[in-house]
Design a protein around this nucleic acid. Structure first.
Lengths: 327, 327
DNA sequence: CTGAAAGCGCTTACAG
DNA sequence: CTGAAAGCGCTTACAG
């Protein structure tokens, strides 16, 4: 038994427009208000969102584009966005692209067509096609995880996290270091973590550091680590993500090496699993959930056309665990 | 520059209703079709989904209610649903309840109000309030993870997984066994895994088995395991989930116990992490992504009012890893 | 095959 | 403070 605003108006004995005004917080007399309230109570009426959106030409839904659902960073970020949005009576719609850049572009257009109030993009790379799409849709877009001068962004402090990890590694006495990174196409993970790390070492001339590249997934990292560990040249392997660190742990185990006795390992991310396993992994922990919240807050401000800082840089912390030994 | 169906009609020189018919696959003459196609091409027109939904009174969106976003089972299941739905031009909308049962009920109503074509519920418990809500909304609802005689369900074979784990544990020679389970309110995890396990042991009178209960999260499991391990009475701890097994691993490590030398451990679930860590955890692996796909398939059949089996039971497999020793 | 008209359930000036 | 009317962009009988 679905009720419309006309039903409520009839039951309450007022005009539809008065009910609408009541619903939208306009000025309504006390007596009328009471009658409408009662009618709504009695019927369990709720407005049809399609009719509302059709007329108002916008929704209170924020579209979120995520490259994957099965990553700690993604899910924490989504949770943060969702929690904040709920509080402000916005809804989140998730569009999963399965790490397919074409789908990412498509999603931008299709969310816009669906009249999202705004789009939050959990970004990995920003191409010209992204910029073109974003400029064409005329709704607010916000990036998380990567920055771009033209787009509002919430990022993690990858550079300083890299710097801090570098300092910590030196402090623990390591001199023969391997850095296991990822593609430089990913500015945040591939470039900034590395350059921060390099910065920490740059004043020193007693350091022997080599840079390697692998992929984000554990098996690839494990394969890369197998070779690295073979040489036994390094006292520590600094990994660009926690998943890569886990790959290294697996490789070490396969080779009968003990961590941190035979070789130390660090990660970036602060995934739950780095604490759950043994040895616990020393890592730079990012605050994904908070980043999500901040992105949601900024997005709502953007929608309401209030000023918002172009770039928000979130904090990080170094979590020291068993995976790093003193040399 | 947003176009409406009226614009297209004018440009093509036909009536709005003809354009609408073209759009919805009705019969339109060749010449008219050409003109309309051109007009749509030229303008980049796409129909306003709100107007469509308002009139047609339904969407092609499937609402999915999930208790949490940050679990392996949830994300894999969602990915499966999403992939399948995309293929059939349906969309998935995720509603996260943060394990709040009230929100779960609310979500059922609110998704229905938003005219979802159907609702897939990643269920943990089914209360009377659930049943009431489901019966009131008059759209198809499908359960994943729990079954109910009144509702279409896709479940994992928790009972036989429990049975298989039980048999394997006996096969490995264990006689002093602890089963670390969860609340029996959760039929699938709390009851069925346990009863399957019990079934495996029932014919034997040389087994000494004790049952304990803990929560789903790692810290709680770890605390429960601390006590259990203190006694050193059991040669194996059979855990109702992989996360609980991880809690046991942590507790064992804290007590300086080695797994599987001092005590063996098994889990249920087959989360990626059980393979990523050392020792790898022996577990009953469920196929979450496939369950999601199957649920999506069944849901679409339900929407199209085609016959669908009430209950689908997915497969599982026992993955043997280092965490179990032969006694 | 095609078009005119009514209507989906709201919101929003406008008038009173 | 309140109401009548128009309109948002579609779809759907109905007629031709």
């Amino acid at each position: 038994m679905i009720r419309t605003i006309a039903d409520i108006a009839k039951i309450a004995g007022v005009a539809k427009s008065t009910v609408s005004r009541y619903l939208n917080g306009g000025s309504v007399g006390e007596a009328t208000k009471k009658k409408i309230e009662k009618a709504i109570q009695d019927t369990g009426y709720t407005p049809n969102p399609f009719a509302q959106s059709l007329k108002a030409k916008k929704t209170n839904i924020i579209g979120t584009i995520v490259p994957r659902l099965d990553s700690y960073a993604s899910s924490q970020t989504l949770i943060g966005i969702d929690e904040q949005l709920k509080e402000w009576n916005y809804q989140m719609l998730i569009s999963n692209t399965s790490q397919d850049l074409d789908r990412e572009i498509e999603s931008i257009y299709s969310l816009a067509k669906q009249k999202m109030a705004g789009i939050i993009l959990l970004a990995t790379v920003i191409t010209d096609r992204h910029l073109k799409a974003i400029s064409e849709i005329h709704i607010p877009v916000l990036l998380i995880g990567q920055e771009h001068e033209e787009i509002h962004s919430v990022i993690h402090d990858d550079y300083h996290a890299g710097l801090a990890i570098g300092k910590y590694v030196l402090e623990k006495g390591h001199r023969k270091i391997a850095f296991l990174g990822v593609t430089e196409q990913d500015i945040a993970v591939g470039v900034k973590r590395k350059t921060g790390f390099q910065k920490a070492l740059e004043a020193r001339d007693d350091i022997d550091v080599s840079y390697f590249e692998t992929e984000f997934n554990i098996p690839a990292a494990q394969a890369a680590a197998m070779k690295l560990l073979d040489s036994r040249e390094h006292s520590i392997i600094v990994c660009a993500t926690d998943n890569i660190a886990i790959g290294v742990l697996k490789a070490a185990y396969k080779q009968g090496l003990s961590i941190p006795r035979d070789v130390s390992v660090t990660g970036f991310g602060g995934y739950d699993v780095t604490e759950a396993i043994h040895p616990g992994i020393t890592t730079a922990k990012f605050h994904y959930k908070e980043a999500g919240k901040k992105a949601a807050i900024n997005m709502v401000e953007l929608i309401q056309e209030r000023p918002v800082e172009k770039l928000t840089t979130m904090n990080f912390e170094i979590i020291k665990r068993e995976s790093v030994d003193t040399v």
